[in-house]
Simulated assay, not measured.
Amino acid sequence: MTSMDDTMNITTFTTEDLSSISPSPTTDEDYYDYQDLLCDRASVRAFRGWYEPPLFWMIALVGGAGNLTVVWIFLNFRRRLKTMSDVYLLNLAVADLLFLFTLPLWAAEASHGWSFGSALCKLNSALYKVNLFSSTLLLTCISVDRYVVIVQTTKAQNSQVERRRCSRLVCIGVWLMALLLAMPEFVFATTTNVESQLYCRMLFPAHLGNRTKILVLSLQVSMGFCLPGIIMAFCYSVIIATLLKTRNFQRHKAMRVILVVVVVFIVSQLPYNGVLVMEAAQASNMTMTDCKEMKRFNMVGQVLKSVAYMHACLNPFLYAFVGVRFRQDVLQLLRCCVQPQTIKSQLSKTSRSPLSSTRASVMSDSDTSQVLSL
């Protein structure tokens, strides 16, 4: 370990400094106070080495299969996107896929360090954040669209063309916002040696102080959870109140769908964002000083991070596969896989059939139950 006097003379952390740092070098904004250097976290890195790779590969494979199915159906069974939610769902699937593509690299790093170079380190870190923010913002857009369709039904029906055009502009804005929020990864992500192994980490120059880490963590929590969560809570609360006033026999199904969506979002995202808030507090005033306590906190953070990542696997089932038409499209896709020669005839029938084009779509603009993907 480098002496404290030597450490004080550098502007970024050296290899010796980094040998004792936190377990989650892939995506967490890692700036460490000198007191952290007194805690050897090799056991935490070992925990990450056996825990993350199989779980990340499972999330990547399951989520990849689900989201690829969504994209394939949109591109092959639906010649054009008919509703705002169709546009949001396609962009959500693409965002989740791009995020899932980063997980094998993080799994490889957890096993034997980062061996893909500094440029890919920056790209992979930024890609993770771009799709973290874009996915959450797109889920917010879907909740707003459901609100408009159910609570302001007449307005929604009279402005379908304008709303579809608006949805494309909103998606462009979402991606640009996500790119902007991911700029710290482009700037600060880099590779560094930790006990003779390279790792990809967020390293802040010492002269910037802890405020940079606190700012980055605050942006992630506020834009990646708090603001979207508040908007989603408002929209779904008003939707439930509206459904309670209707006599539609499917309203109970609709409310169950809403409840599942909200519960899954809170259960998967709230605990890990709580960890990020505690990390910001730690960077601000060193709330934890005991080494064993810090190592337990790091391990818990890894587990909760994995739970948050599972949301990318669940999105296709929560927002697409629960839809009547989407389920039928999936069955049709399976039949096409079993009998490849029927693909052209099936696609032709789908594009010609008026029933297919008017059937209840995922969150269709015409009916409450259809809007909620029942």
Rank of each mutant, 00 (worst) to 15 (best):
L243D: 04
K245I: 06
R247C: 03
R247Y: 11
N248Q: 04
F249M: 04
R251K: 15
R251D: 06
R251M: 05
M255K: 00
R256F: 03
V257T: 03
I258P: 03
L259A: 13
V260S: 08
V261C: 08
V263L: 07
V263C: 03
V264M: 01
F265T: 03
I266F: 13
V267N: 02
S268V: 00
Q269I: 00
L270I: 00
P271Q: 05
Y272E: 03
N273C: 02
N273P: 11
G274S: 01
G274C: 03
V275A: 05
L276Y: 02
L276N: 00
L276I: 09
V277Q: 15
M278N: 04
E279R: 14
A280T: 05
A280R: 00
A280W: 09
A281I: 05
A281P: 01
A283K: 09
A283S: 02
S284E: 12
S284K: 14
S284F: 15
M286V: 14
M286A: 09
T287A: 13
D290P: 05
D290T: 12
C291R: 13
K292R: 11
E293V: 15
M294Q: 13
K295D: 14
K295I: 11
K295R: 15
R296W: 04
F297A: 00
F297D: 08
F297Y: 08
N298C: 15
N298P: 05
M299N: 13
M299T: 04
M299E: 14
G301L: 09
V303H: 05
L304M: 13
L304E: 10
S306K: 15
V307T: 07
A308P: 12
Y309I: 10
Y309N: 10
M310P: 02
M310Q: 12
A312Q: 08
C313Q: 08
